[in-house]
Design a protein around this nucleic acid. Structure first.
Lengths: 196, 196
DNA sequence: CGCAGAATTCAACGGCCAATGAGTTCGGCT
DNA sequence: AGCCGAACTCATTGGCCGTTGAATTCTGCG
């Protein structure tokens, strides 16, 4: 275990981003409370004190790590532009594609895992869901009880995530995108537009 | 804070059950890792060492606390006896009724919350789901891909729990049983018996 | 070149936790 | 009545964690 000398490194170290990436992965794997500053530091190959130097507190690190590499509201808006026909399918497909793109450093999973047993994270998740997804969807569909419909969709979407990532149900993990879209798309479409 | 004297209490104390009840509530509220032996002991109005006296380790306490006050396999079996017609509705209704009956000391919520960031609990949850619910359901419905269908149902059921208990979506929490059964019943029925 | 400040490490503090072991009081069996 | 074991508490230990402050080395600007 070669200890490194103290002091600044030469060149562009990109350490800050390395820490953020490591933090996102740890939070996504274990949630807020289980993730230790020390484990993030180790994963980023850095001293724990440096994490504090950059982000102040663990809460600060979490807040910084939860930023998406894209704007989720835009993604939702683009889906809504195409009208309400086939919206259910588009929602599922977008979700799955986005997940594949994010890989192991997935803020949504991190938020979801952290929300359990850490109320501030639960509130962040609720606010993200409400502001970026539920509100736009609820105003876009022109039917009765729009908010309840949006939350029904959210419950199925969250269920997909938890079933695959937390409970790790095998056939759901193994299923390909087409199968999942065919299964879940009509469910969401029904929640959005059918009679309840 | 009146310190109690050491030594055995007179009469039937029922302390063991008090500890188990307190543990179930704490685990259901905060999950395994966030729950401390000390908080359980405090909630049961008892010294922390007594919890160890009864259950050995925290894992032991958790295992004991996760026992249901009824046999879930029986409940599932009774639902399956009535055939596959309306099975989706019966599943949702049973789930909701069972939840209302269990109140704040709910092993399913405890298991779900603990599964995040504590792999042994995740495995317990997976084994419970598989053995007590998914396997019986998958063998009872006589269709193609029974296992995938069962897991699709599980994903929606888990989604209901997480959306209401963890994310706390307001309209889902406020909705009455009839509304939820009308919304979710057909979804589950479709997962179980319709073409995919 | 000189210097302010950023990047980085080290060592340490106080806090909380699970677990342990020894000691105290009581119930129940003989 | 006597005693063994169960119920119960107290004090302590060792470990991990978040956070802090000082020390060291490098960069970039004037």
């Amino acid at each position: 275990m070669a200890k490194r000398a103290a002091g600044r490194r030469p060149g562009d170290s990109g350490t800050r981003e390395a820490i953020l990436g490591a933090a996102r992965e740890r939070f996504a794997e274990q949630g807020f409370r289980e993730t230790t500053m020390r484990s993030v530091a180790t994963a980023a190959d850095v001293d724990p004190a440096l994490v504090h130097h950059y982000f102040g507190t663990k809460e600060g690190l979490f807040a910084s790590a939860m930023a998406f590499p894209f704007n989720p509201a835009d993604v939702v808006a683009r889906m809504l532009e195409q009208g309400v026909d086939g919206l259910g399918e588009r929602l599922v497909r977008t979700l799955l594609v986005t997940f594949a793109r994010l890989g192991p450093a997935n803020p949504m999973i991190a938020l979801l895992r952290s929300a359990v047993g850490h109320p501030p994270a639960a509130q962040m998740l609720r606010e993200f869901l409400t502001g970026a997804v539920l509100d736009p969807v609820a105003t876009a569909i022109e039917v009765d009880r729009p908010r309840l419909r949006a939350e029904l969709c959210a419950s199925q979407v969250v269920g997909i995530l938890v079933a695959r990532e937390v409970v790790e149900l095998p056939e759901l993990r193994a299923a390909d995108t087409a199968t999942l879209v065919a299964a879940y798309g009509p469910t969401l479409q029904r929640y959005l537009t059918a009679d309840l």
